[in-house]
Design a protein around this nucleic acid. Structure first.
Lengths: 224, 224
DNA sequence: CGGAATCTTGACGGATCCTTAACGCCGGTG
DNA sequence: CACCGGCGTTAAGGATCCGTCAAGATTCCG
């Protein structure tokens, strides 16, 4: 759940954005002026910032520059000013996008998706490590004790799904649907076979797995 | 010097953009329709794409989706349509930004800078070495035990793609799209033939390759 | 126009991977 | 204590994929 910080002095717009963004699965934090925005951002670093340029206490561009001193989170700027120089200044100050009021909510959401699509590469590490093995999502490679481990396509698909949700319980239906397709009514026997192979290749003691855990009757879970 | 591919069917706009972008230090390539754009992008991968949605031969969104199958270069969409759904469709199809005609050149340049700021730094070493052979990207030359190795154009294209992404798994579709063009549905048999030739020329033991590895069912990988 | 290099196409054996079935273990239940 | 359902393990069959070779088609270049 990506965290979004919304900065605007218009309480109505703030509330509307909060409701809309939360309805689309984002975690939302709000600030009404530049000072509060910087405090909120440092206390709980957001995955993205929506910033209004017209703030009561300080220039929006100043907030942007201050934020850029230590944060690389994408910033989408809102503004009532249509002038070309305003856009250029904001973009060159570190903004990643700029839209003018009034704007359509659908367009705003689409631009947020476009920005967040790029963001994970910069924030999330592409590799997930455990005490025994390491999974490199970007290179699609698994190493154990420094030695590469050969995984079949199906084995990788299952491991990738589990590793991308650390600690989260993934149901058998979710795995089957993700790997074999929505006709997931296939026998759950597949899972038992492939989980056994994954453990044989990755776990030291297949009898007592330490990272690929079974939740009887429900599904599986990856523990880092 | 970053390479920018500009796709538009308006010859005047194309020329104006070429001159402006080159004046700002970018290397510019142009295409007048979707097919030419995809061919140009696969032949000489650009660092950024400026794409007009209104093309004569195919839908701009289709070009975008096809490009996204193998390229991660940022794409800025130009369009004469101001509709919200047009913007949402383009952005969700993989575009990174969307501006409507007419637009200011200064704003376009600022948005390009913002996009390129996020782009992964293309700090490629000019040569890549392994224990057995050495690949000089700049001179387009391969040496083995000090002796130059003759490669055909197709062989080089495949090797270059693999070597530019050390350790990363490249899917068969990515290779086919990059070398033979976006009509990548060509038979994967090509790859088998050329990988065999590459290994015969570069590997000591073609039966047990040490640098050009196969991932059955997925693609190939270069190990330094 | 002719020869050489390169690309395309097809076929075959072997390797890899997916599917399926069978069996034993364990915990819960009547 | 016997039964039963869910899970782990293993192995064999078949389907798919890959490496290899060679011959025909095409392009390139003198």
């Amino acid at each position: 759940m990506t965290g979004i910080l919304v900065v605007d002095d218009d309480q109505h717009l703030l509330k509307a954005l909060r409701i809309t963004l939360q309805a689309h699965g984002y975690s939302v934090e709000t600030a009404a002026d530049g000072e509060a925005a910087l405090v909120a951002a440092s206390r709980n670093p957001p995955g993205l910032v929506v910033l209004d340029l017209g703030l009561p206490d300080m220039d929006g561009a100043a907030v942007l520059r201050e934020l850029r001193r230590w944060s690389t989170a994408p910033v989408l700027v809102l503004s009532a000013r249509h002038g070309s120089s305003d856009k250029v200044d904001a973009l060159d100050a570190g903004a990643d996008d700029y839209i003018t009021k009034p704007f359509g909510l659908e367009e705003l959401l689409a631009r947020l998706r476009a920005l967040l699509r790029r963001a994970p590469e910069a924030t999330e590490p592409s590799t997930v490590d455990t005490a025994e093995f390491s999974v490199d999502l970007g290179r699609r490679m698994v190493t154990r004790n420094g030695e590469p481990v050969r995984l079949t396509p199906t084995e990788w698909s299952i491991l990738e799904l589990l590793v991308r949700n650390p600690g989260k319980l993934i149901t058998q239906q979710q795995i089957l649907a993700s790997v074999w397709g929505p006709a997931y009514e296939k026998e759950a026997n597949y899972l038992r076979v492939y989980m056994a192979q994954l453990r044989r290749k990755l776990e030291a003691d297949t009898g007592n797995p330490r990272h690929l855990l079974t939740e009887a009757g429900i599904g599986y879970r990856f523990r880092p």
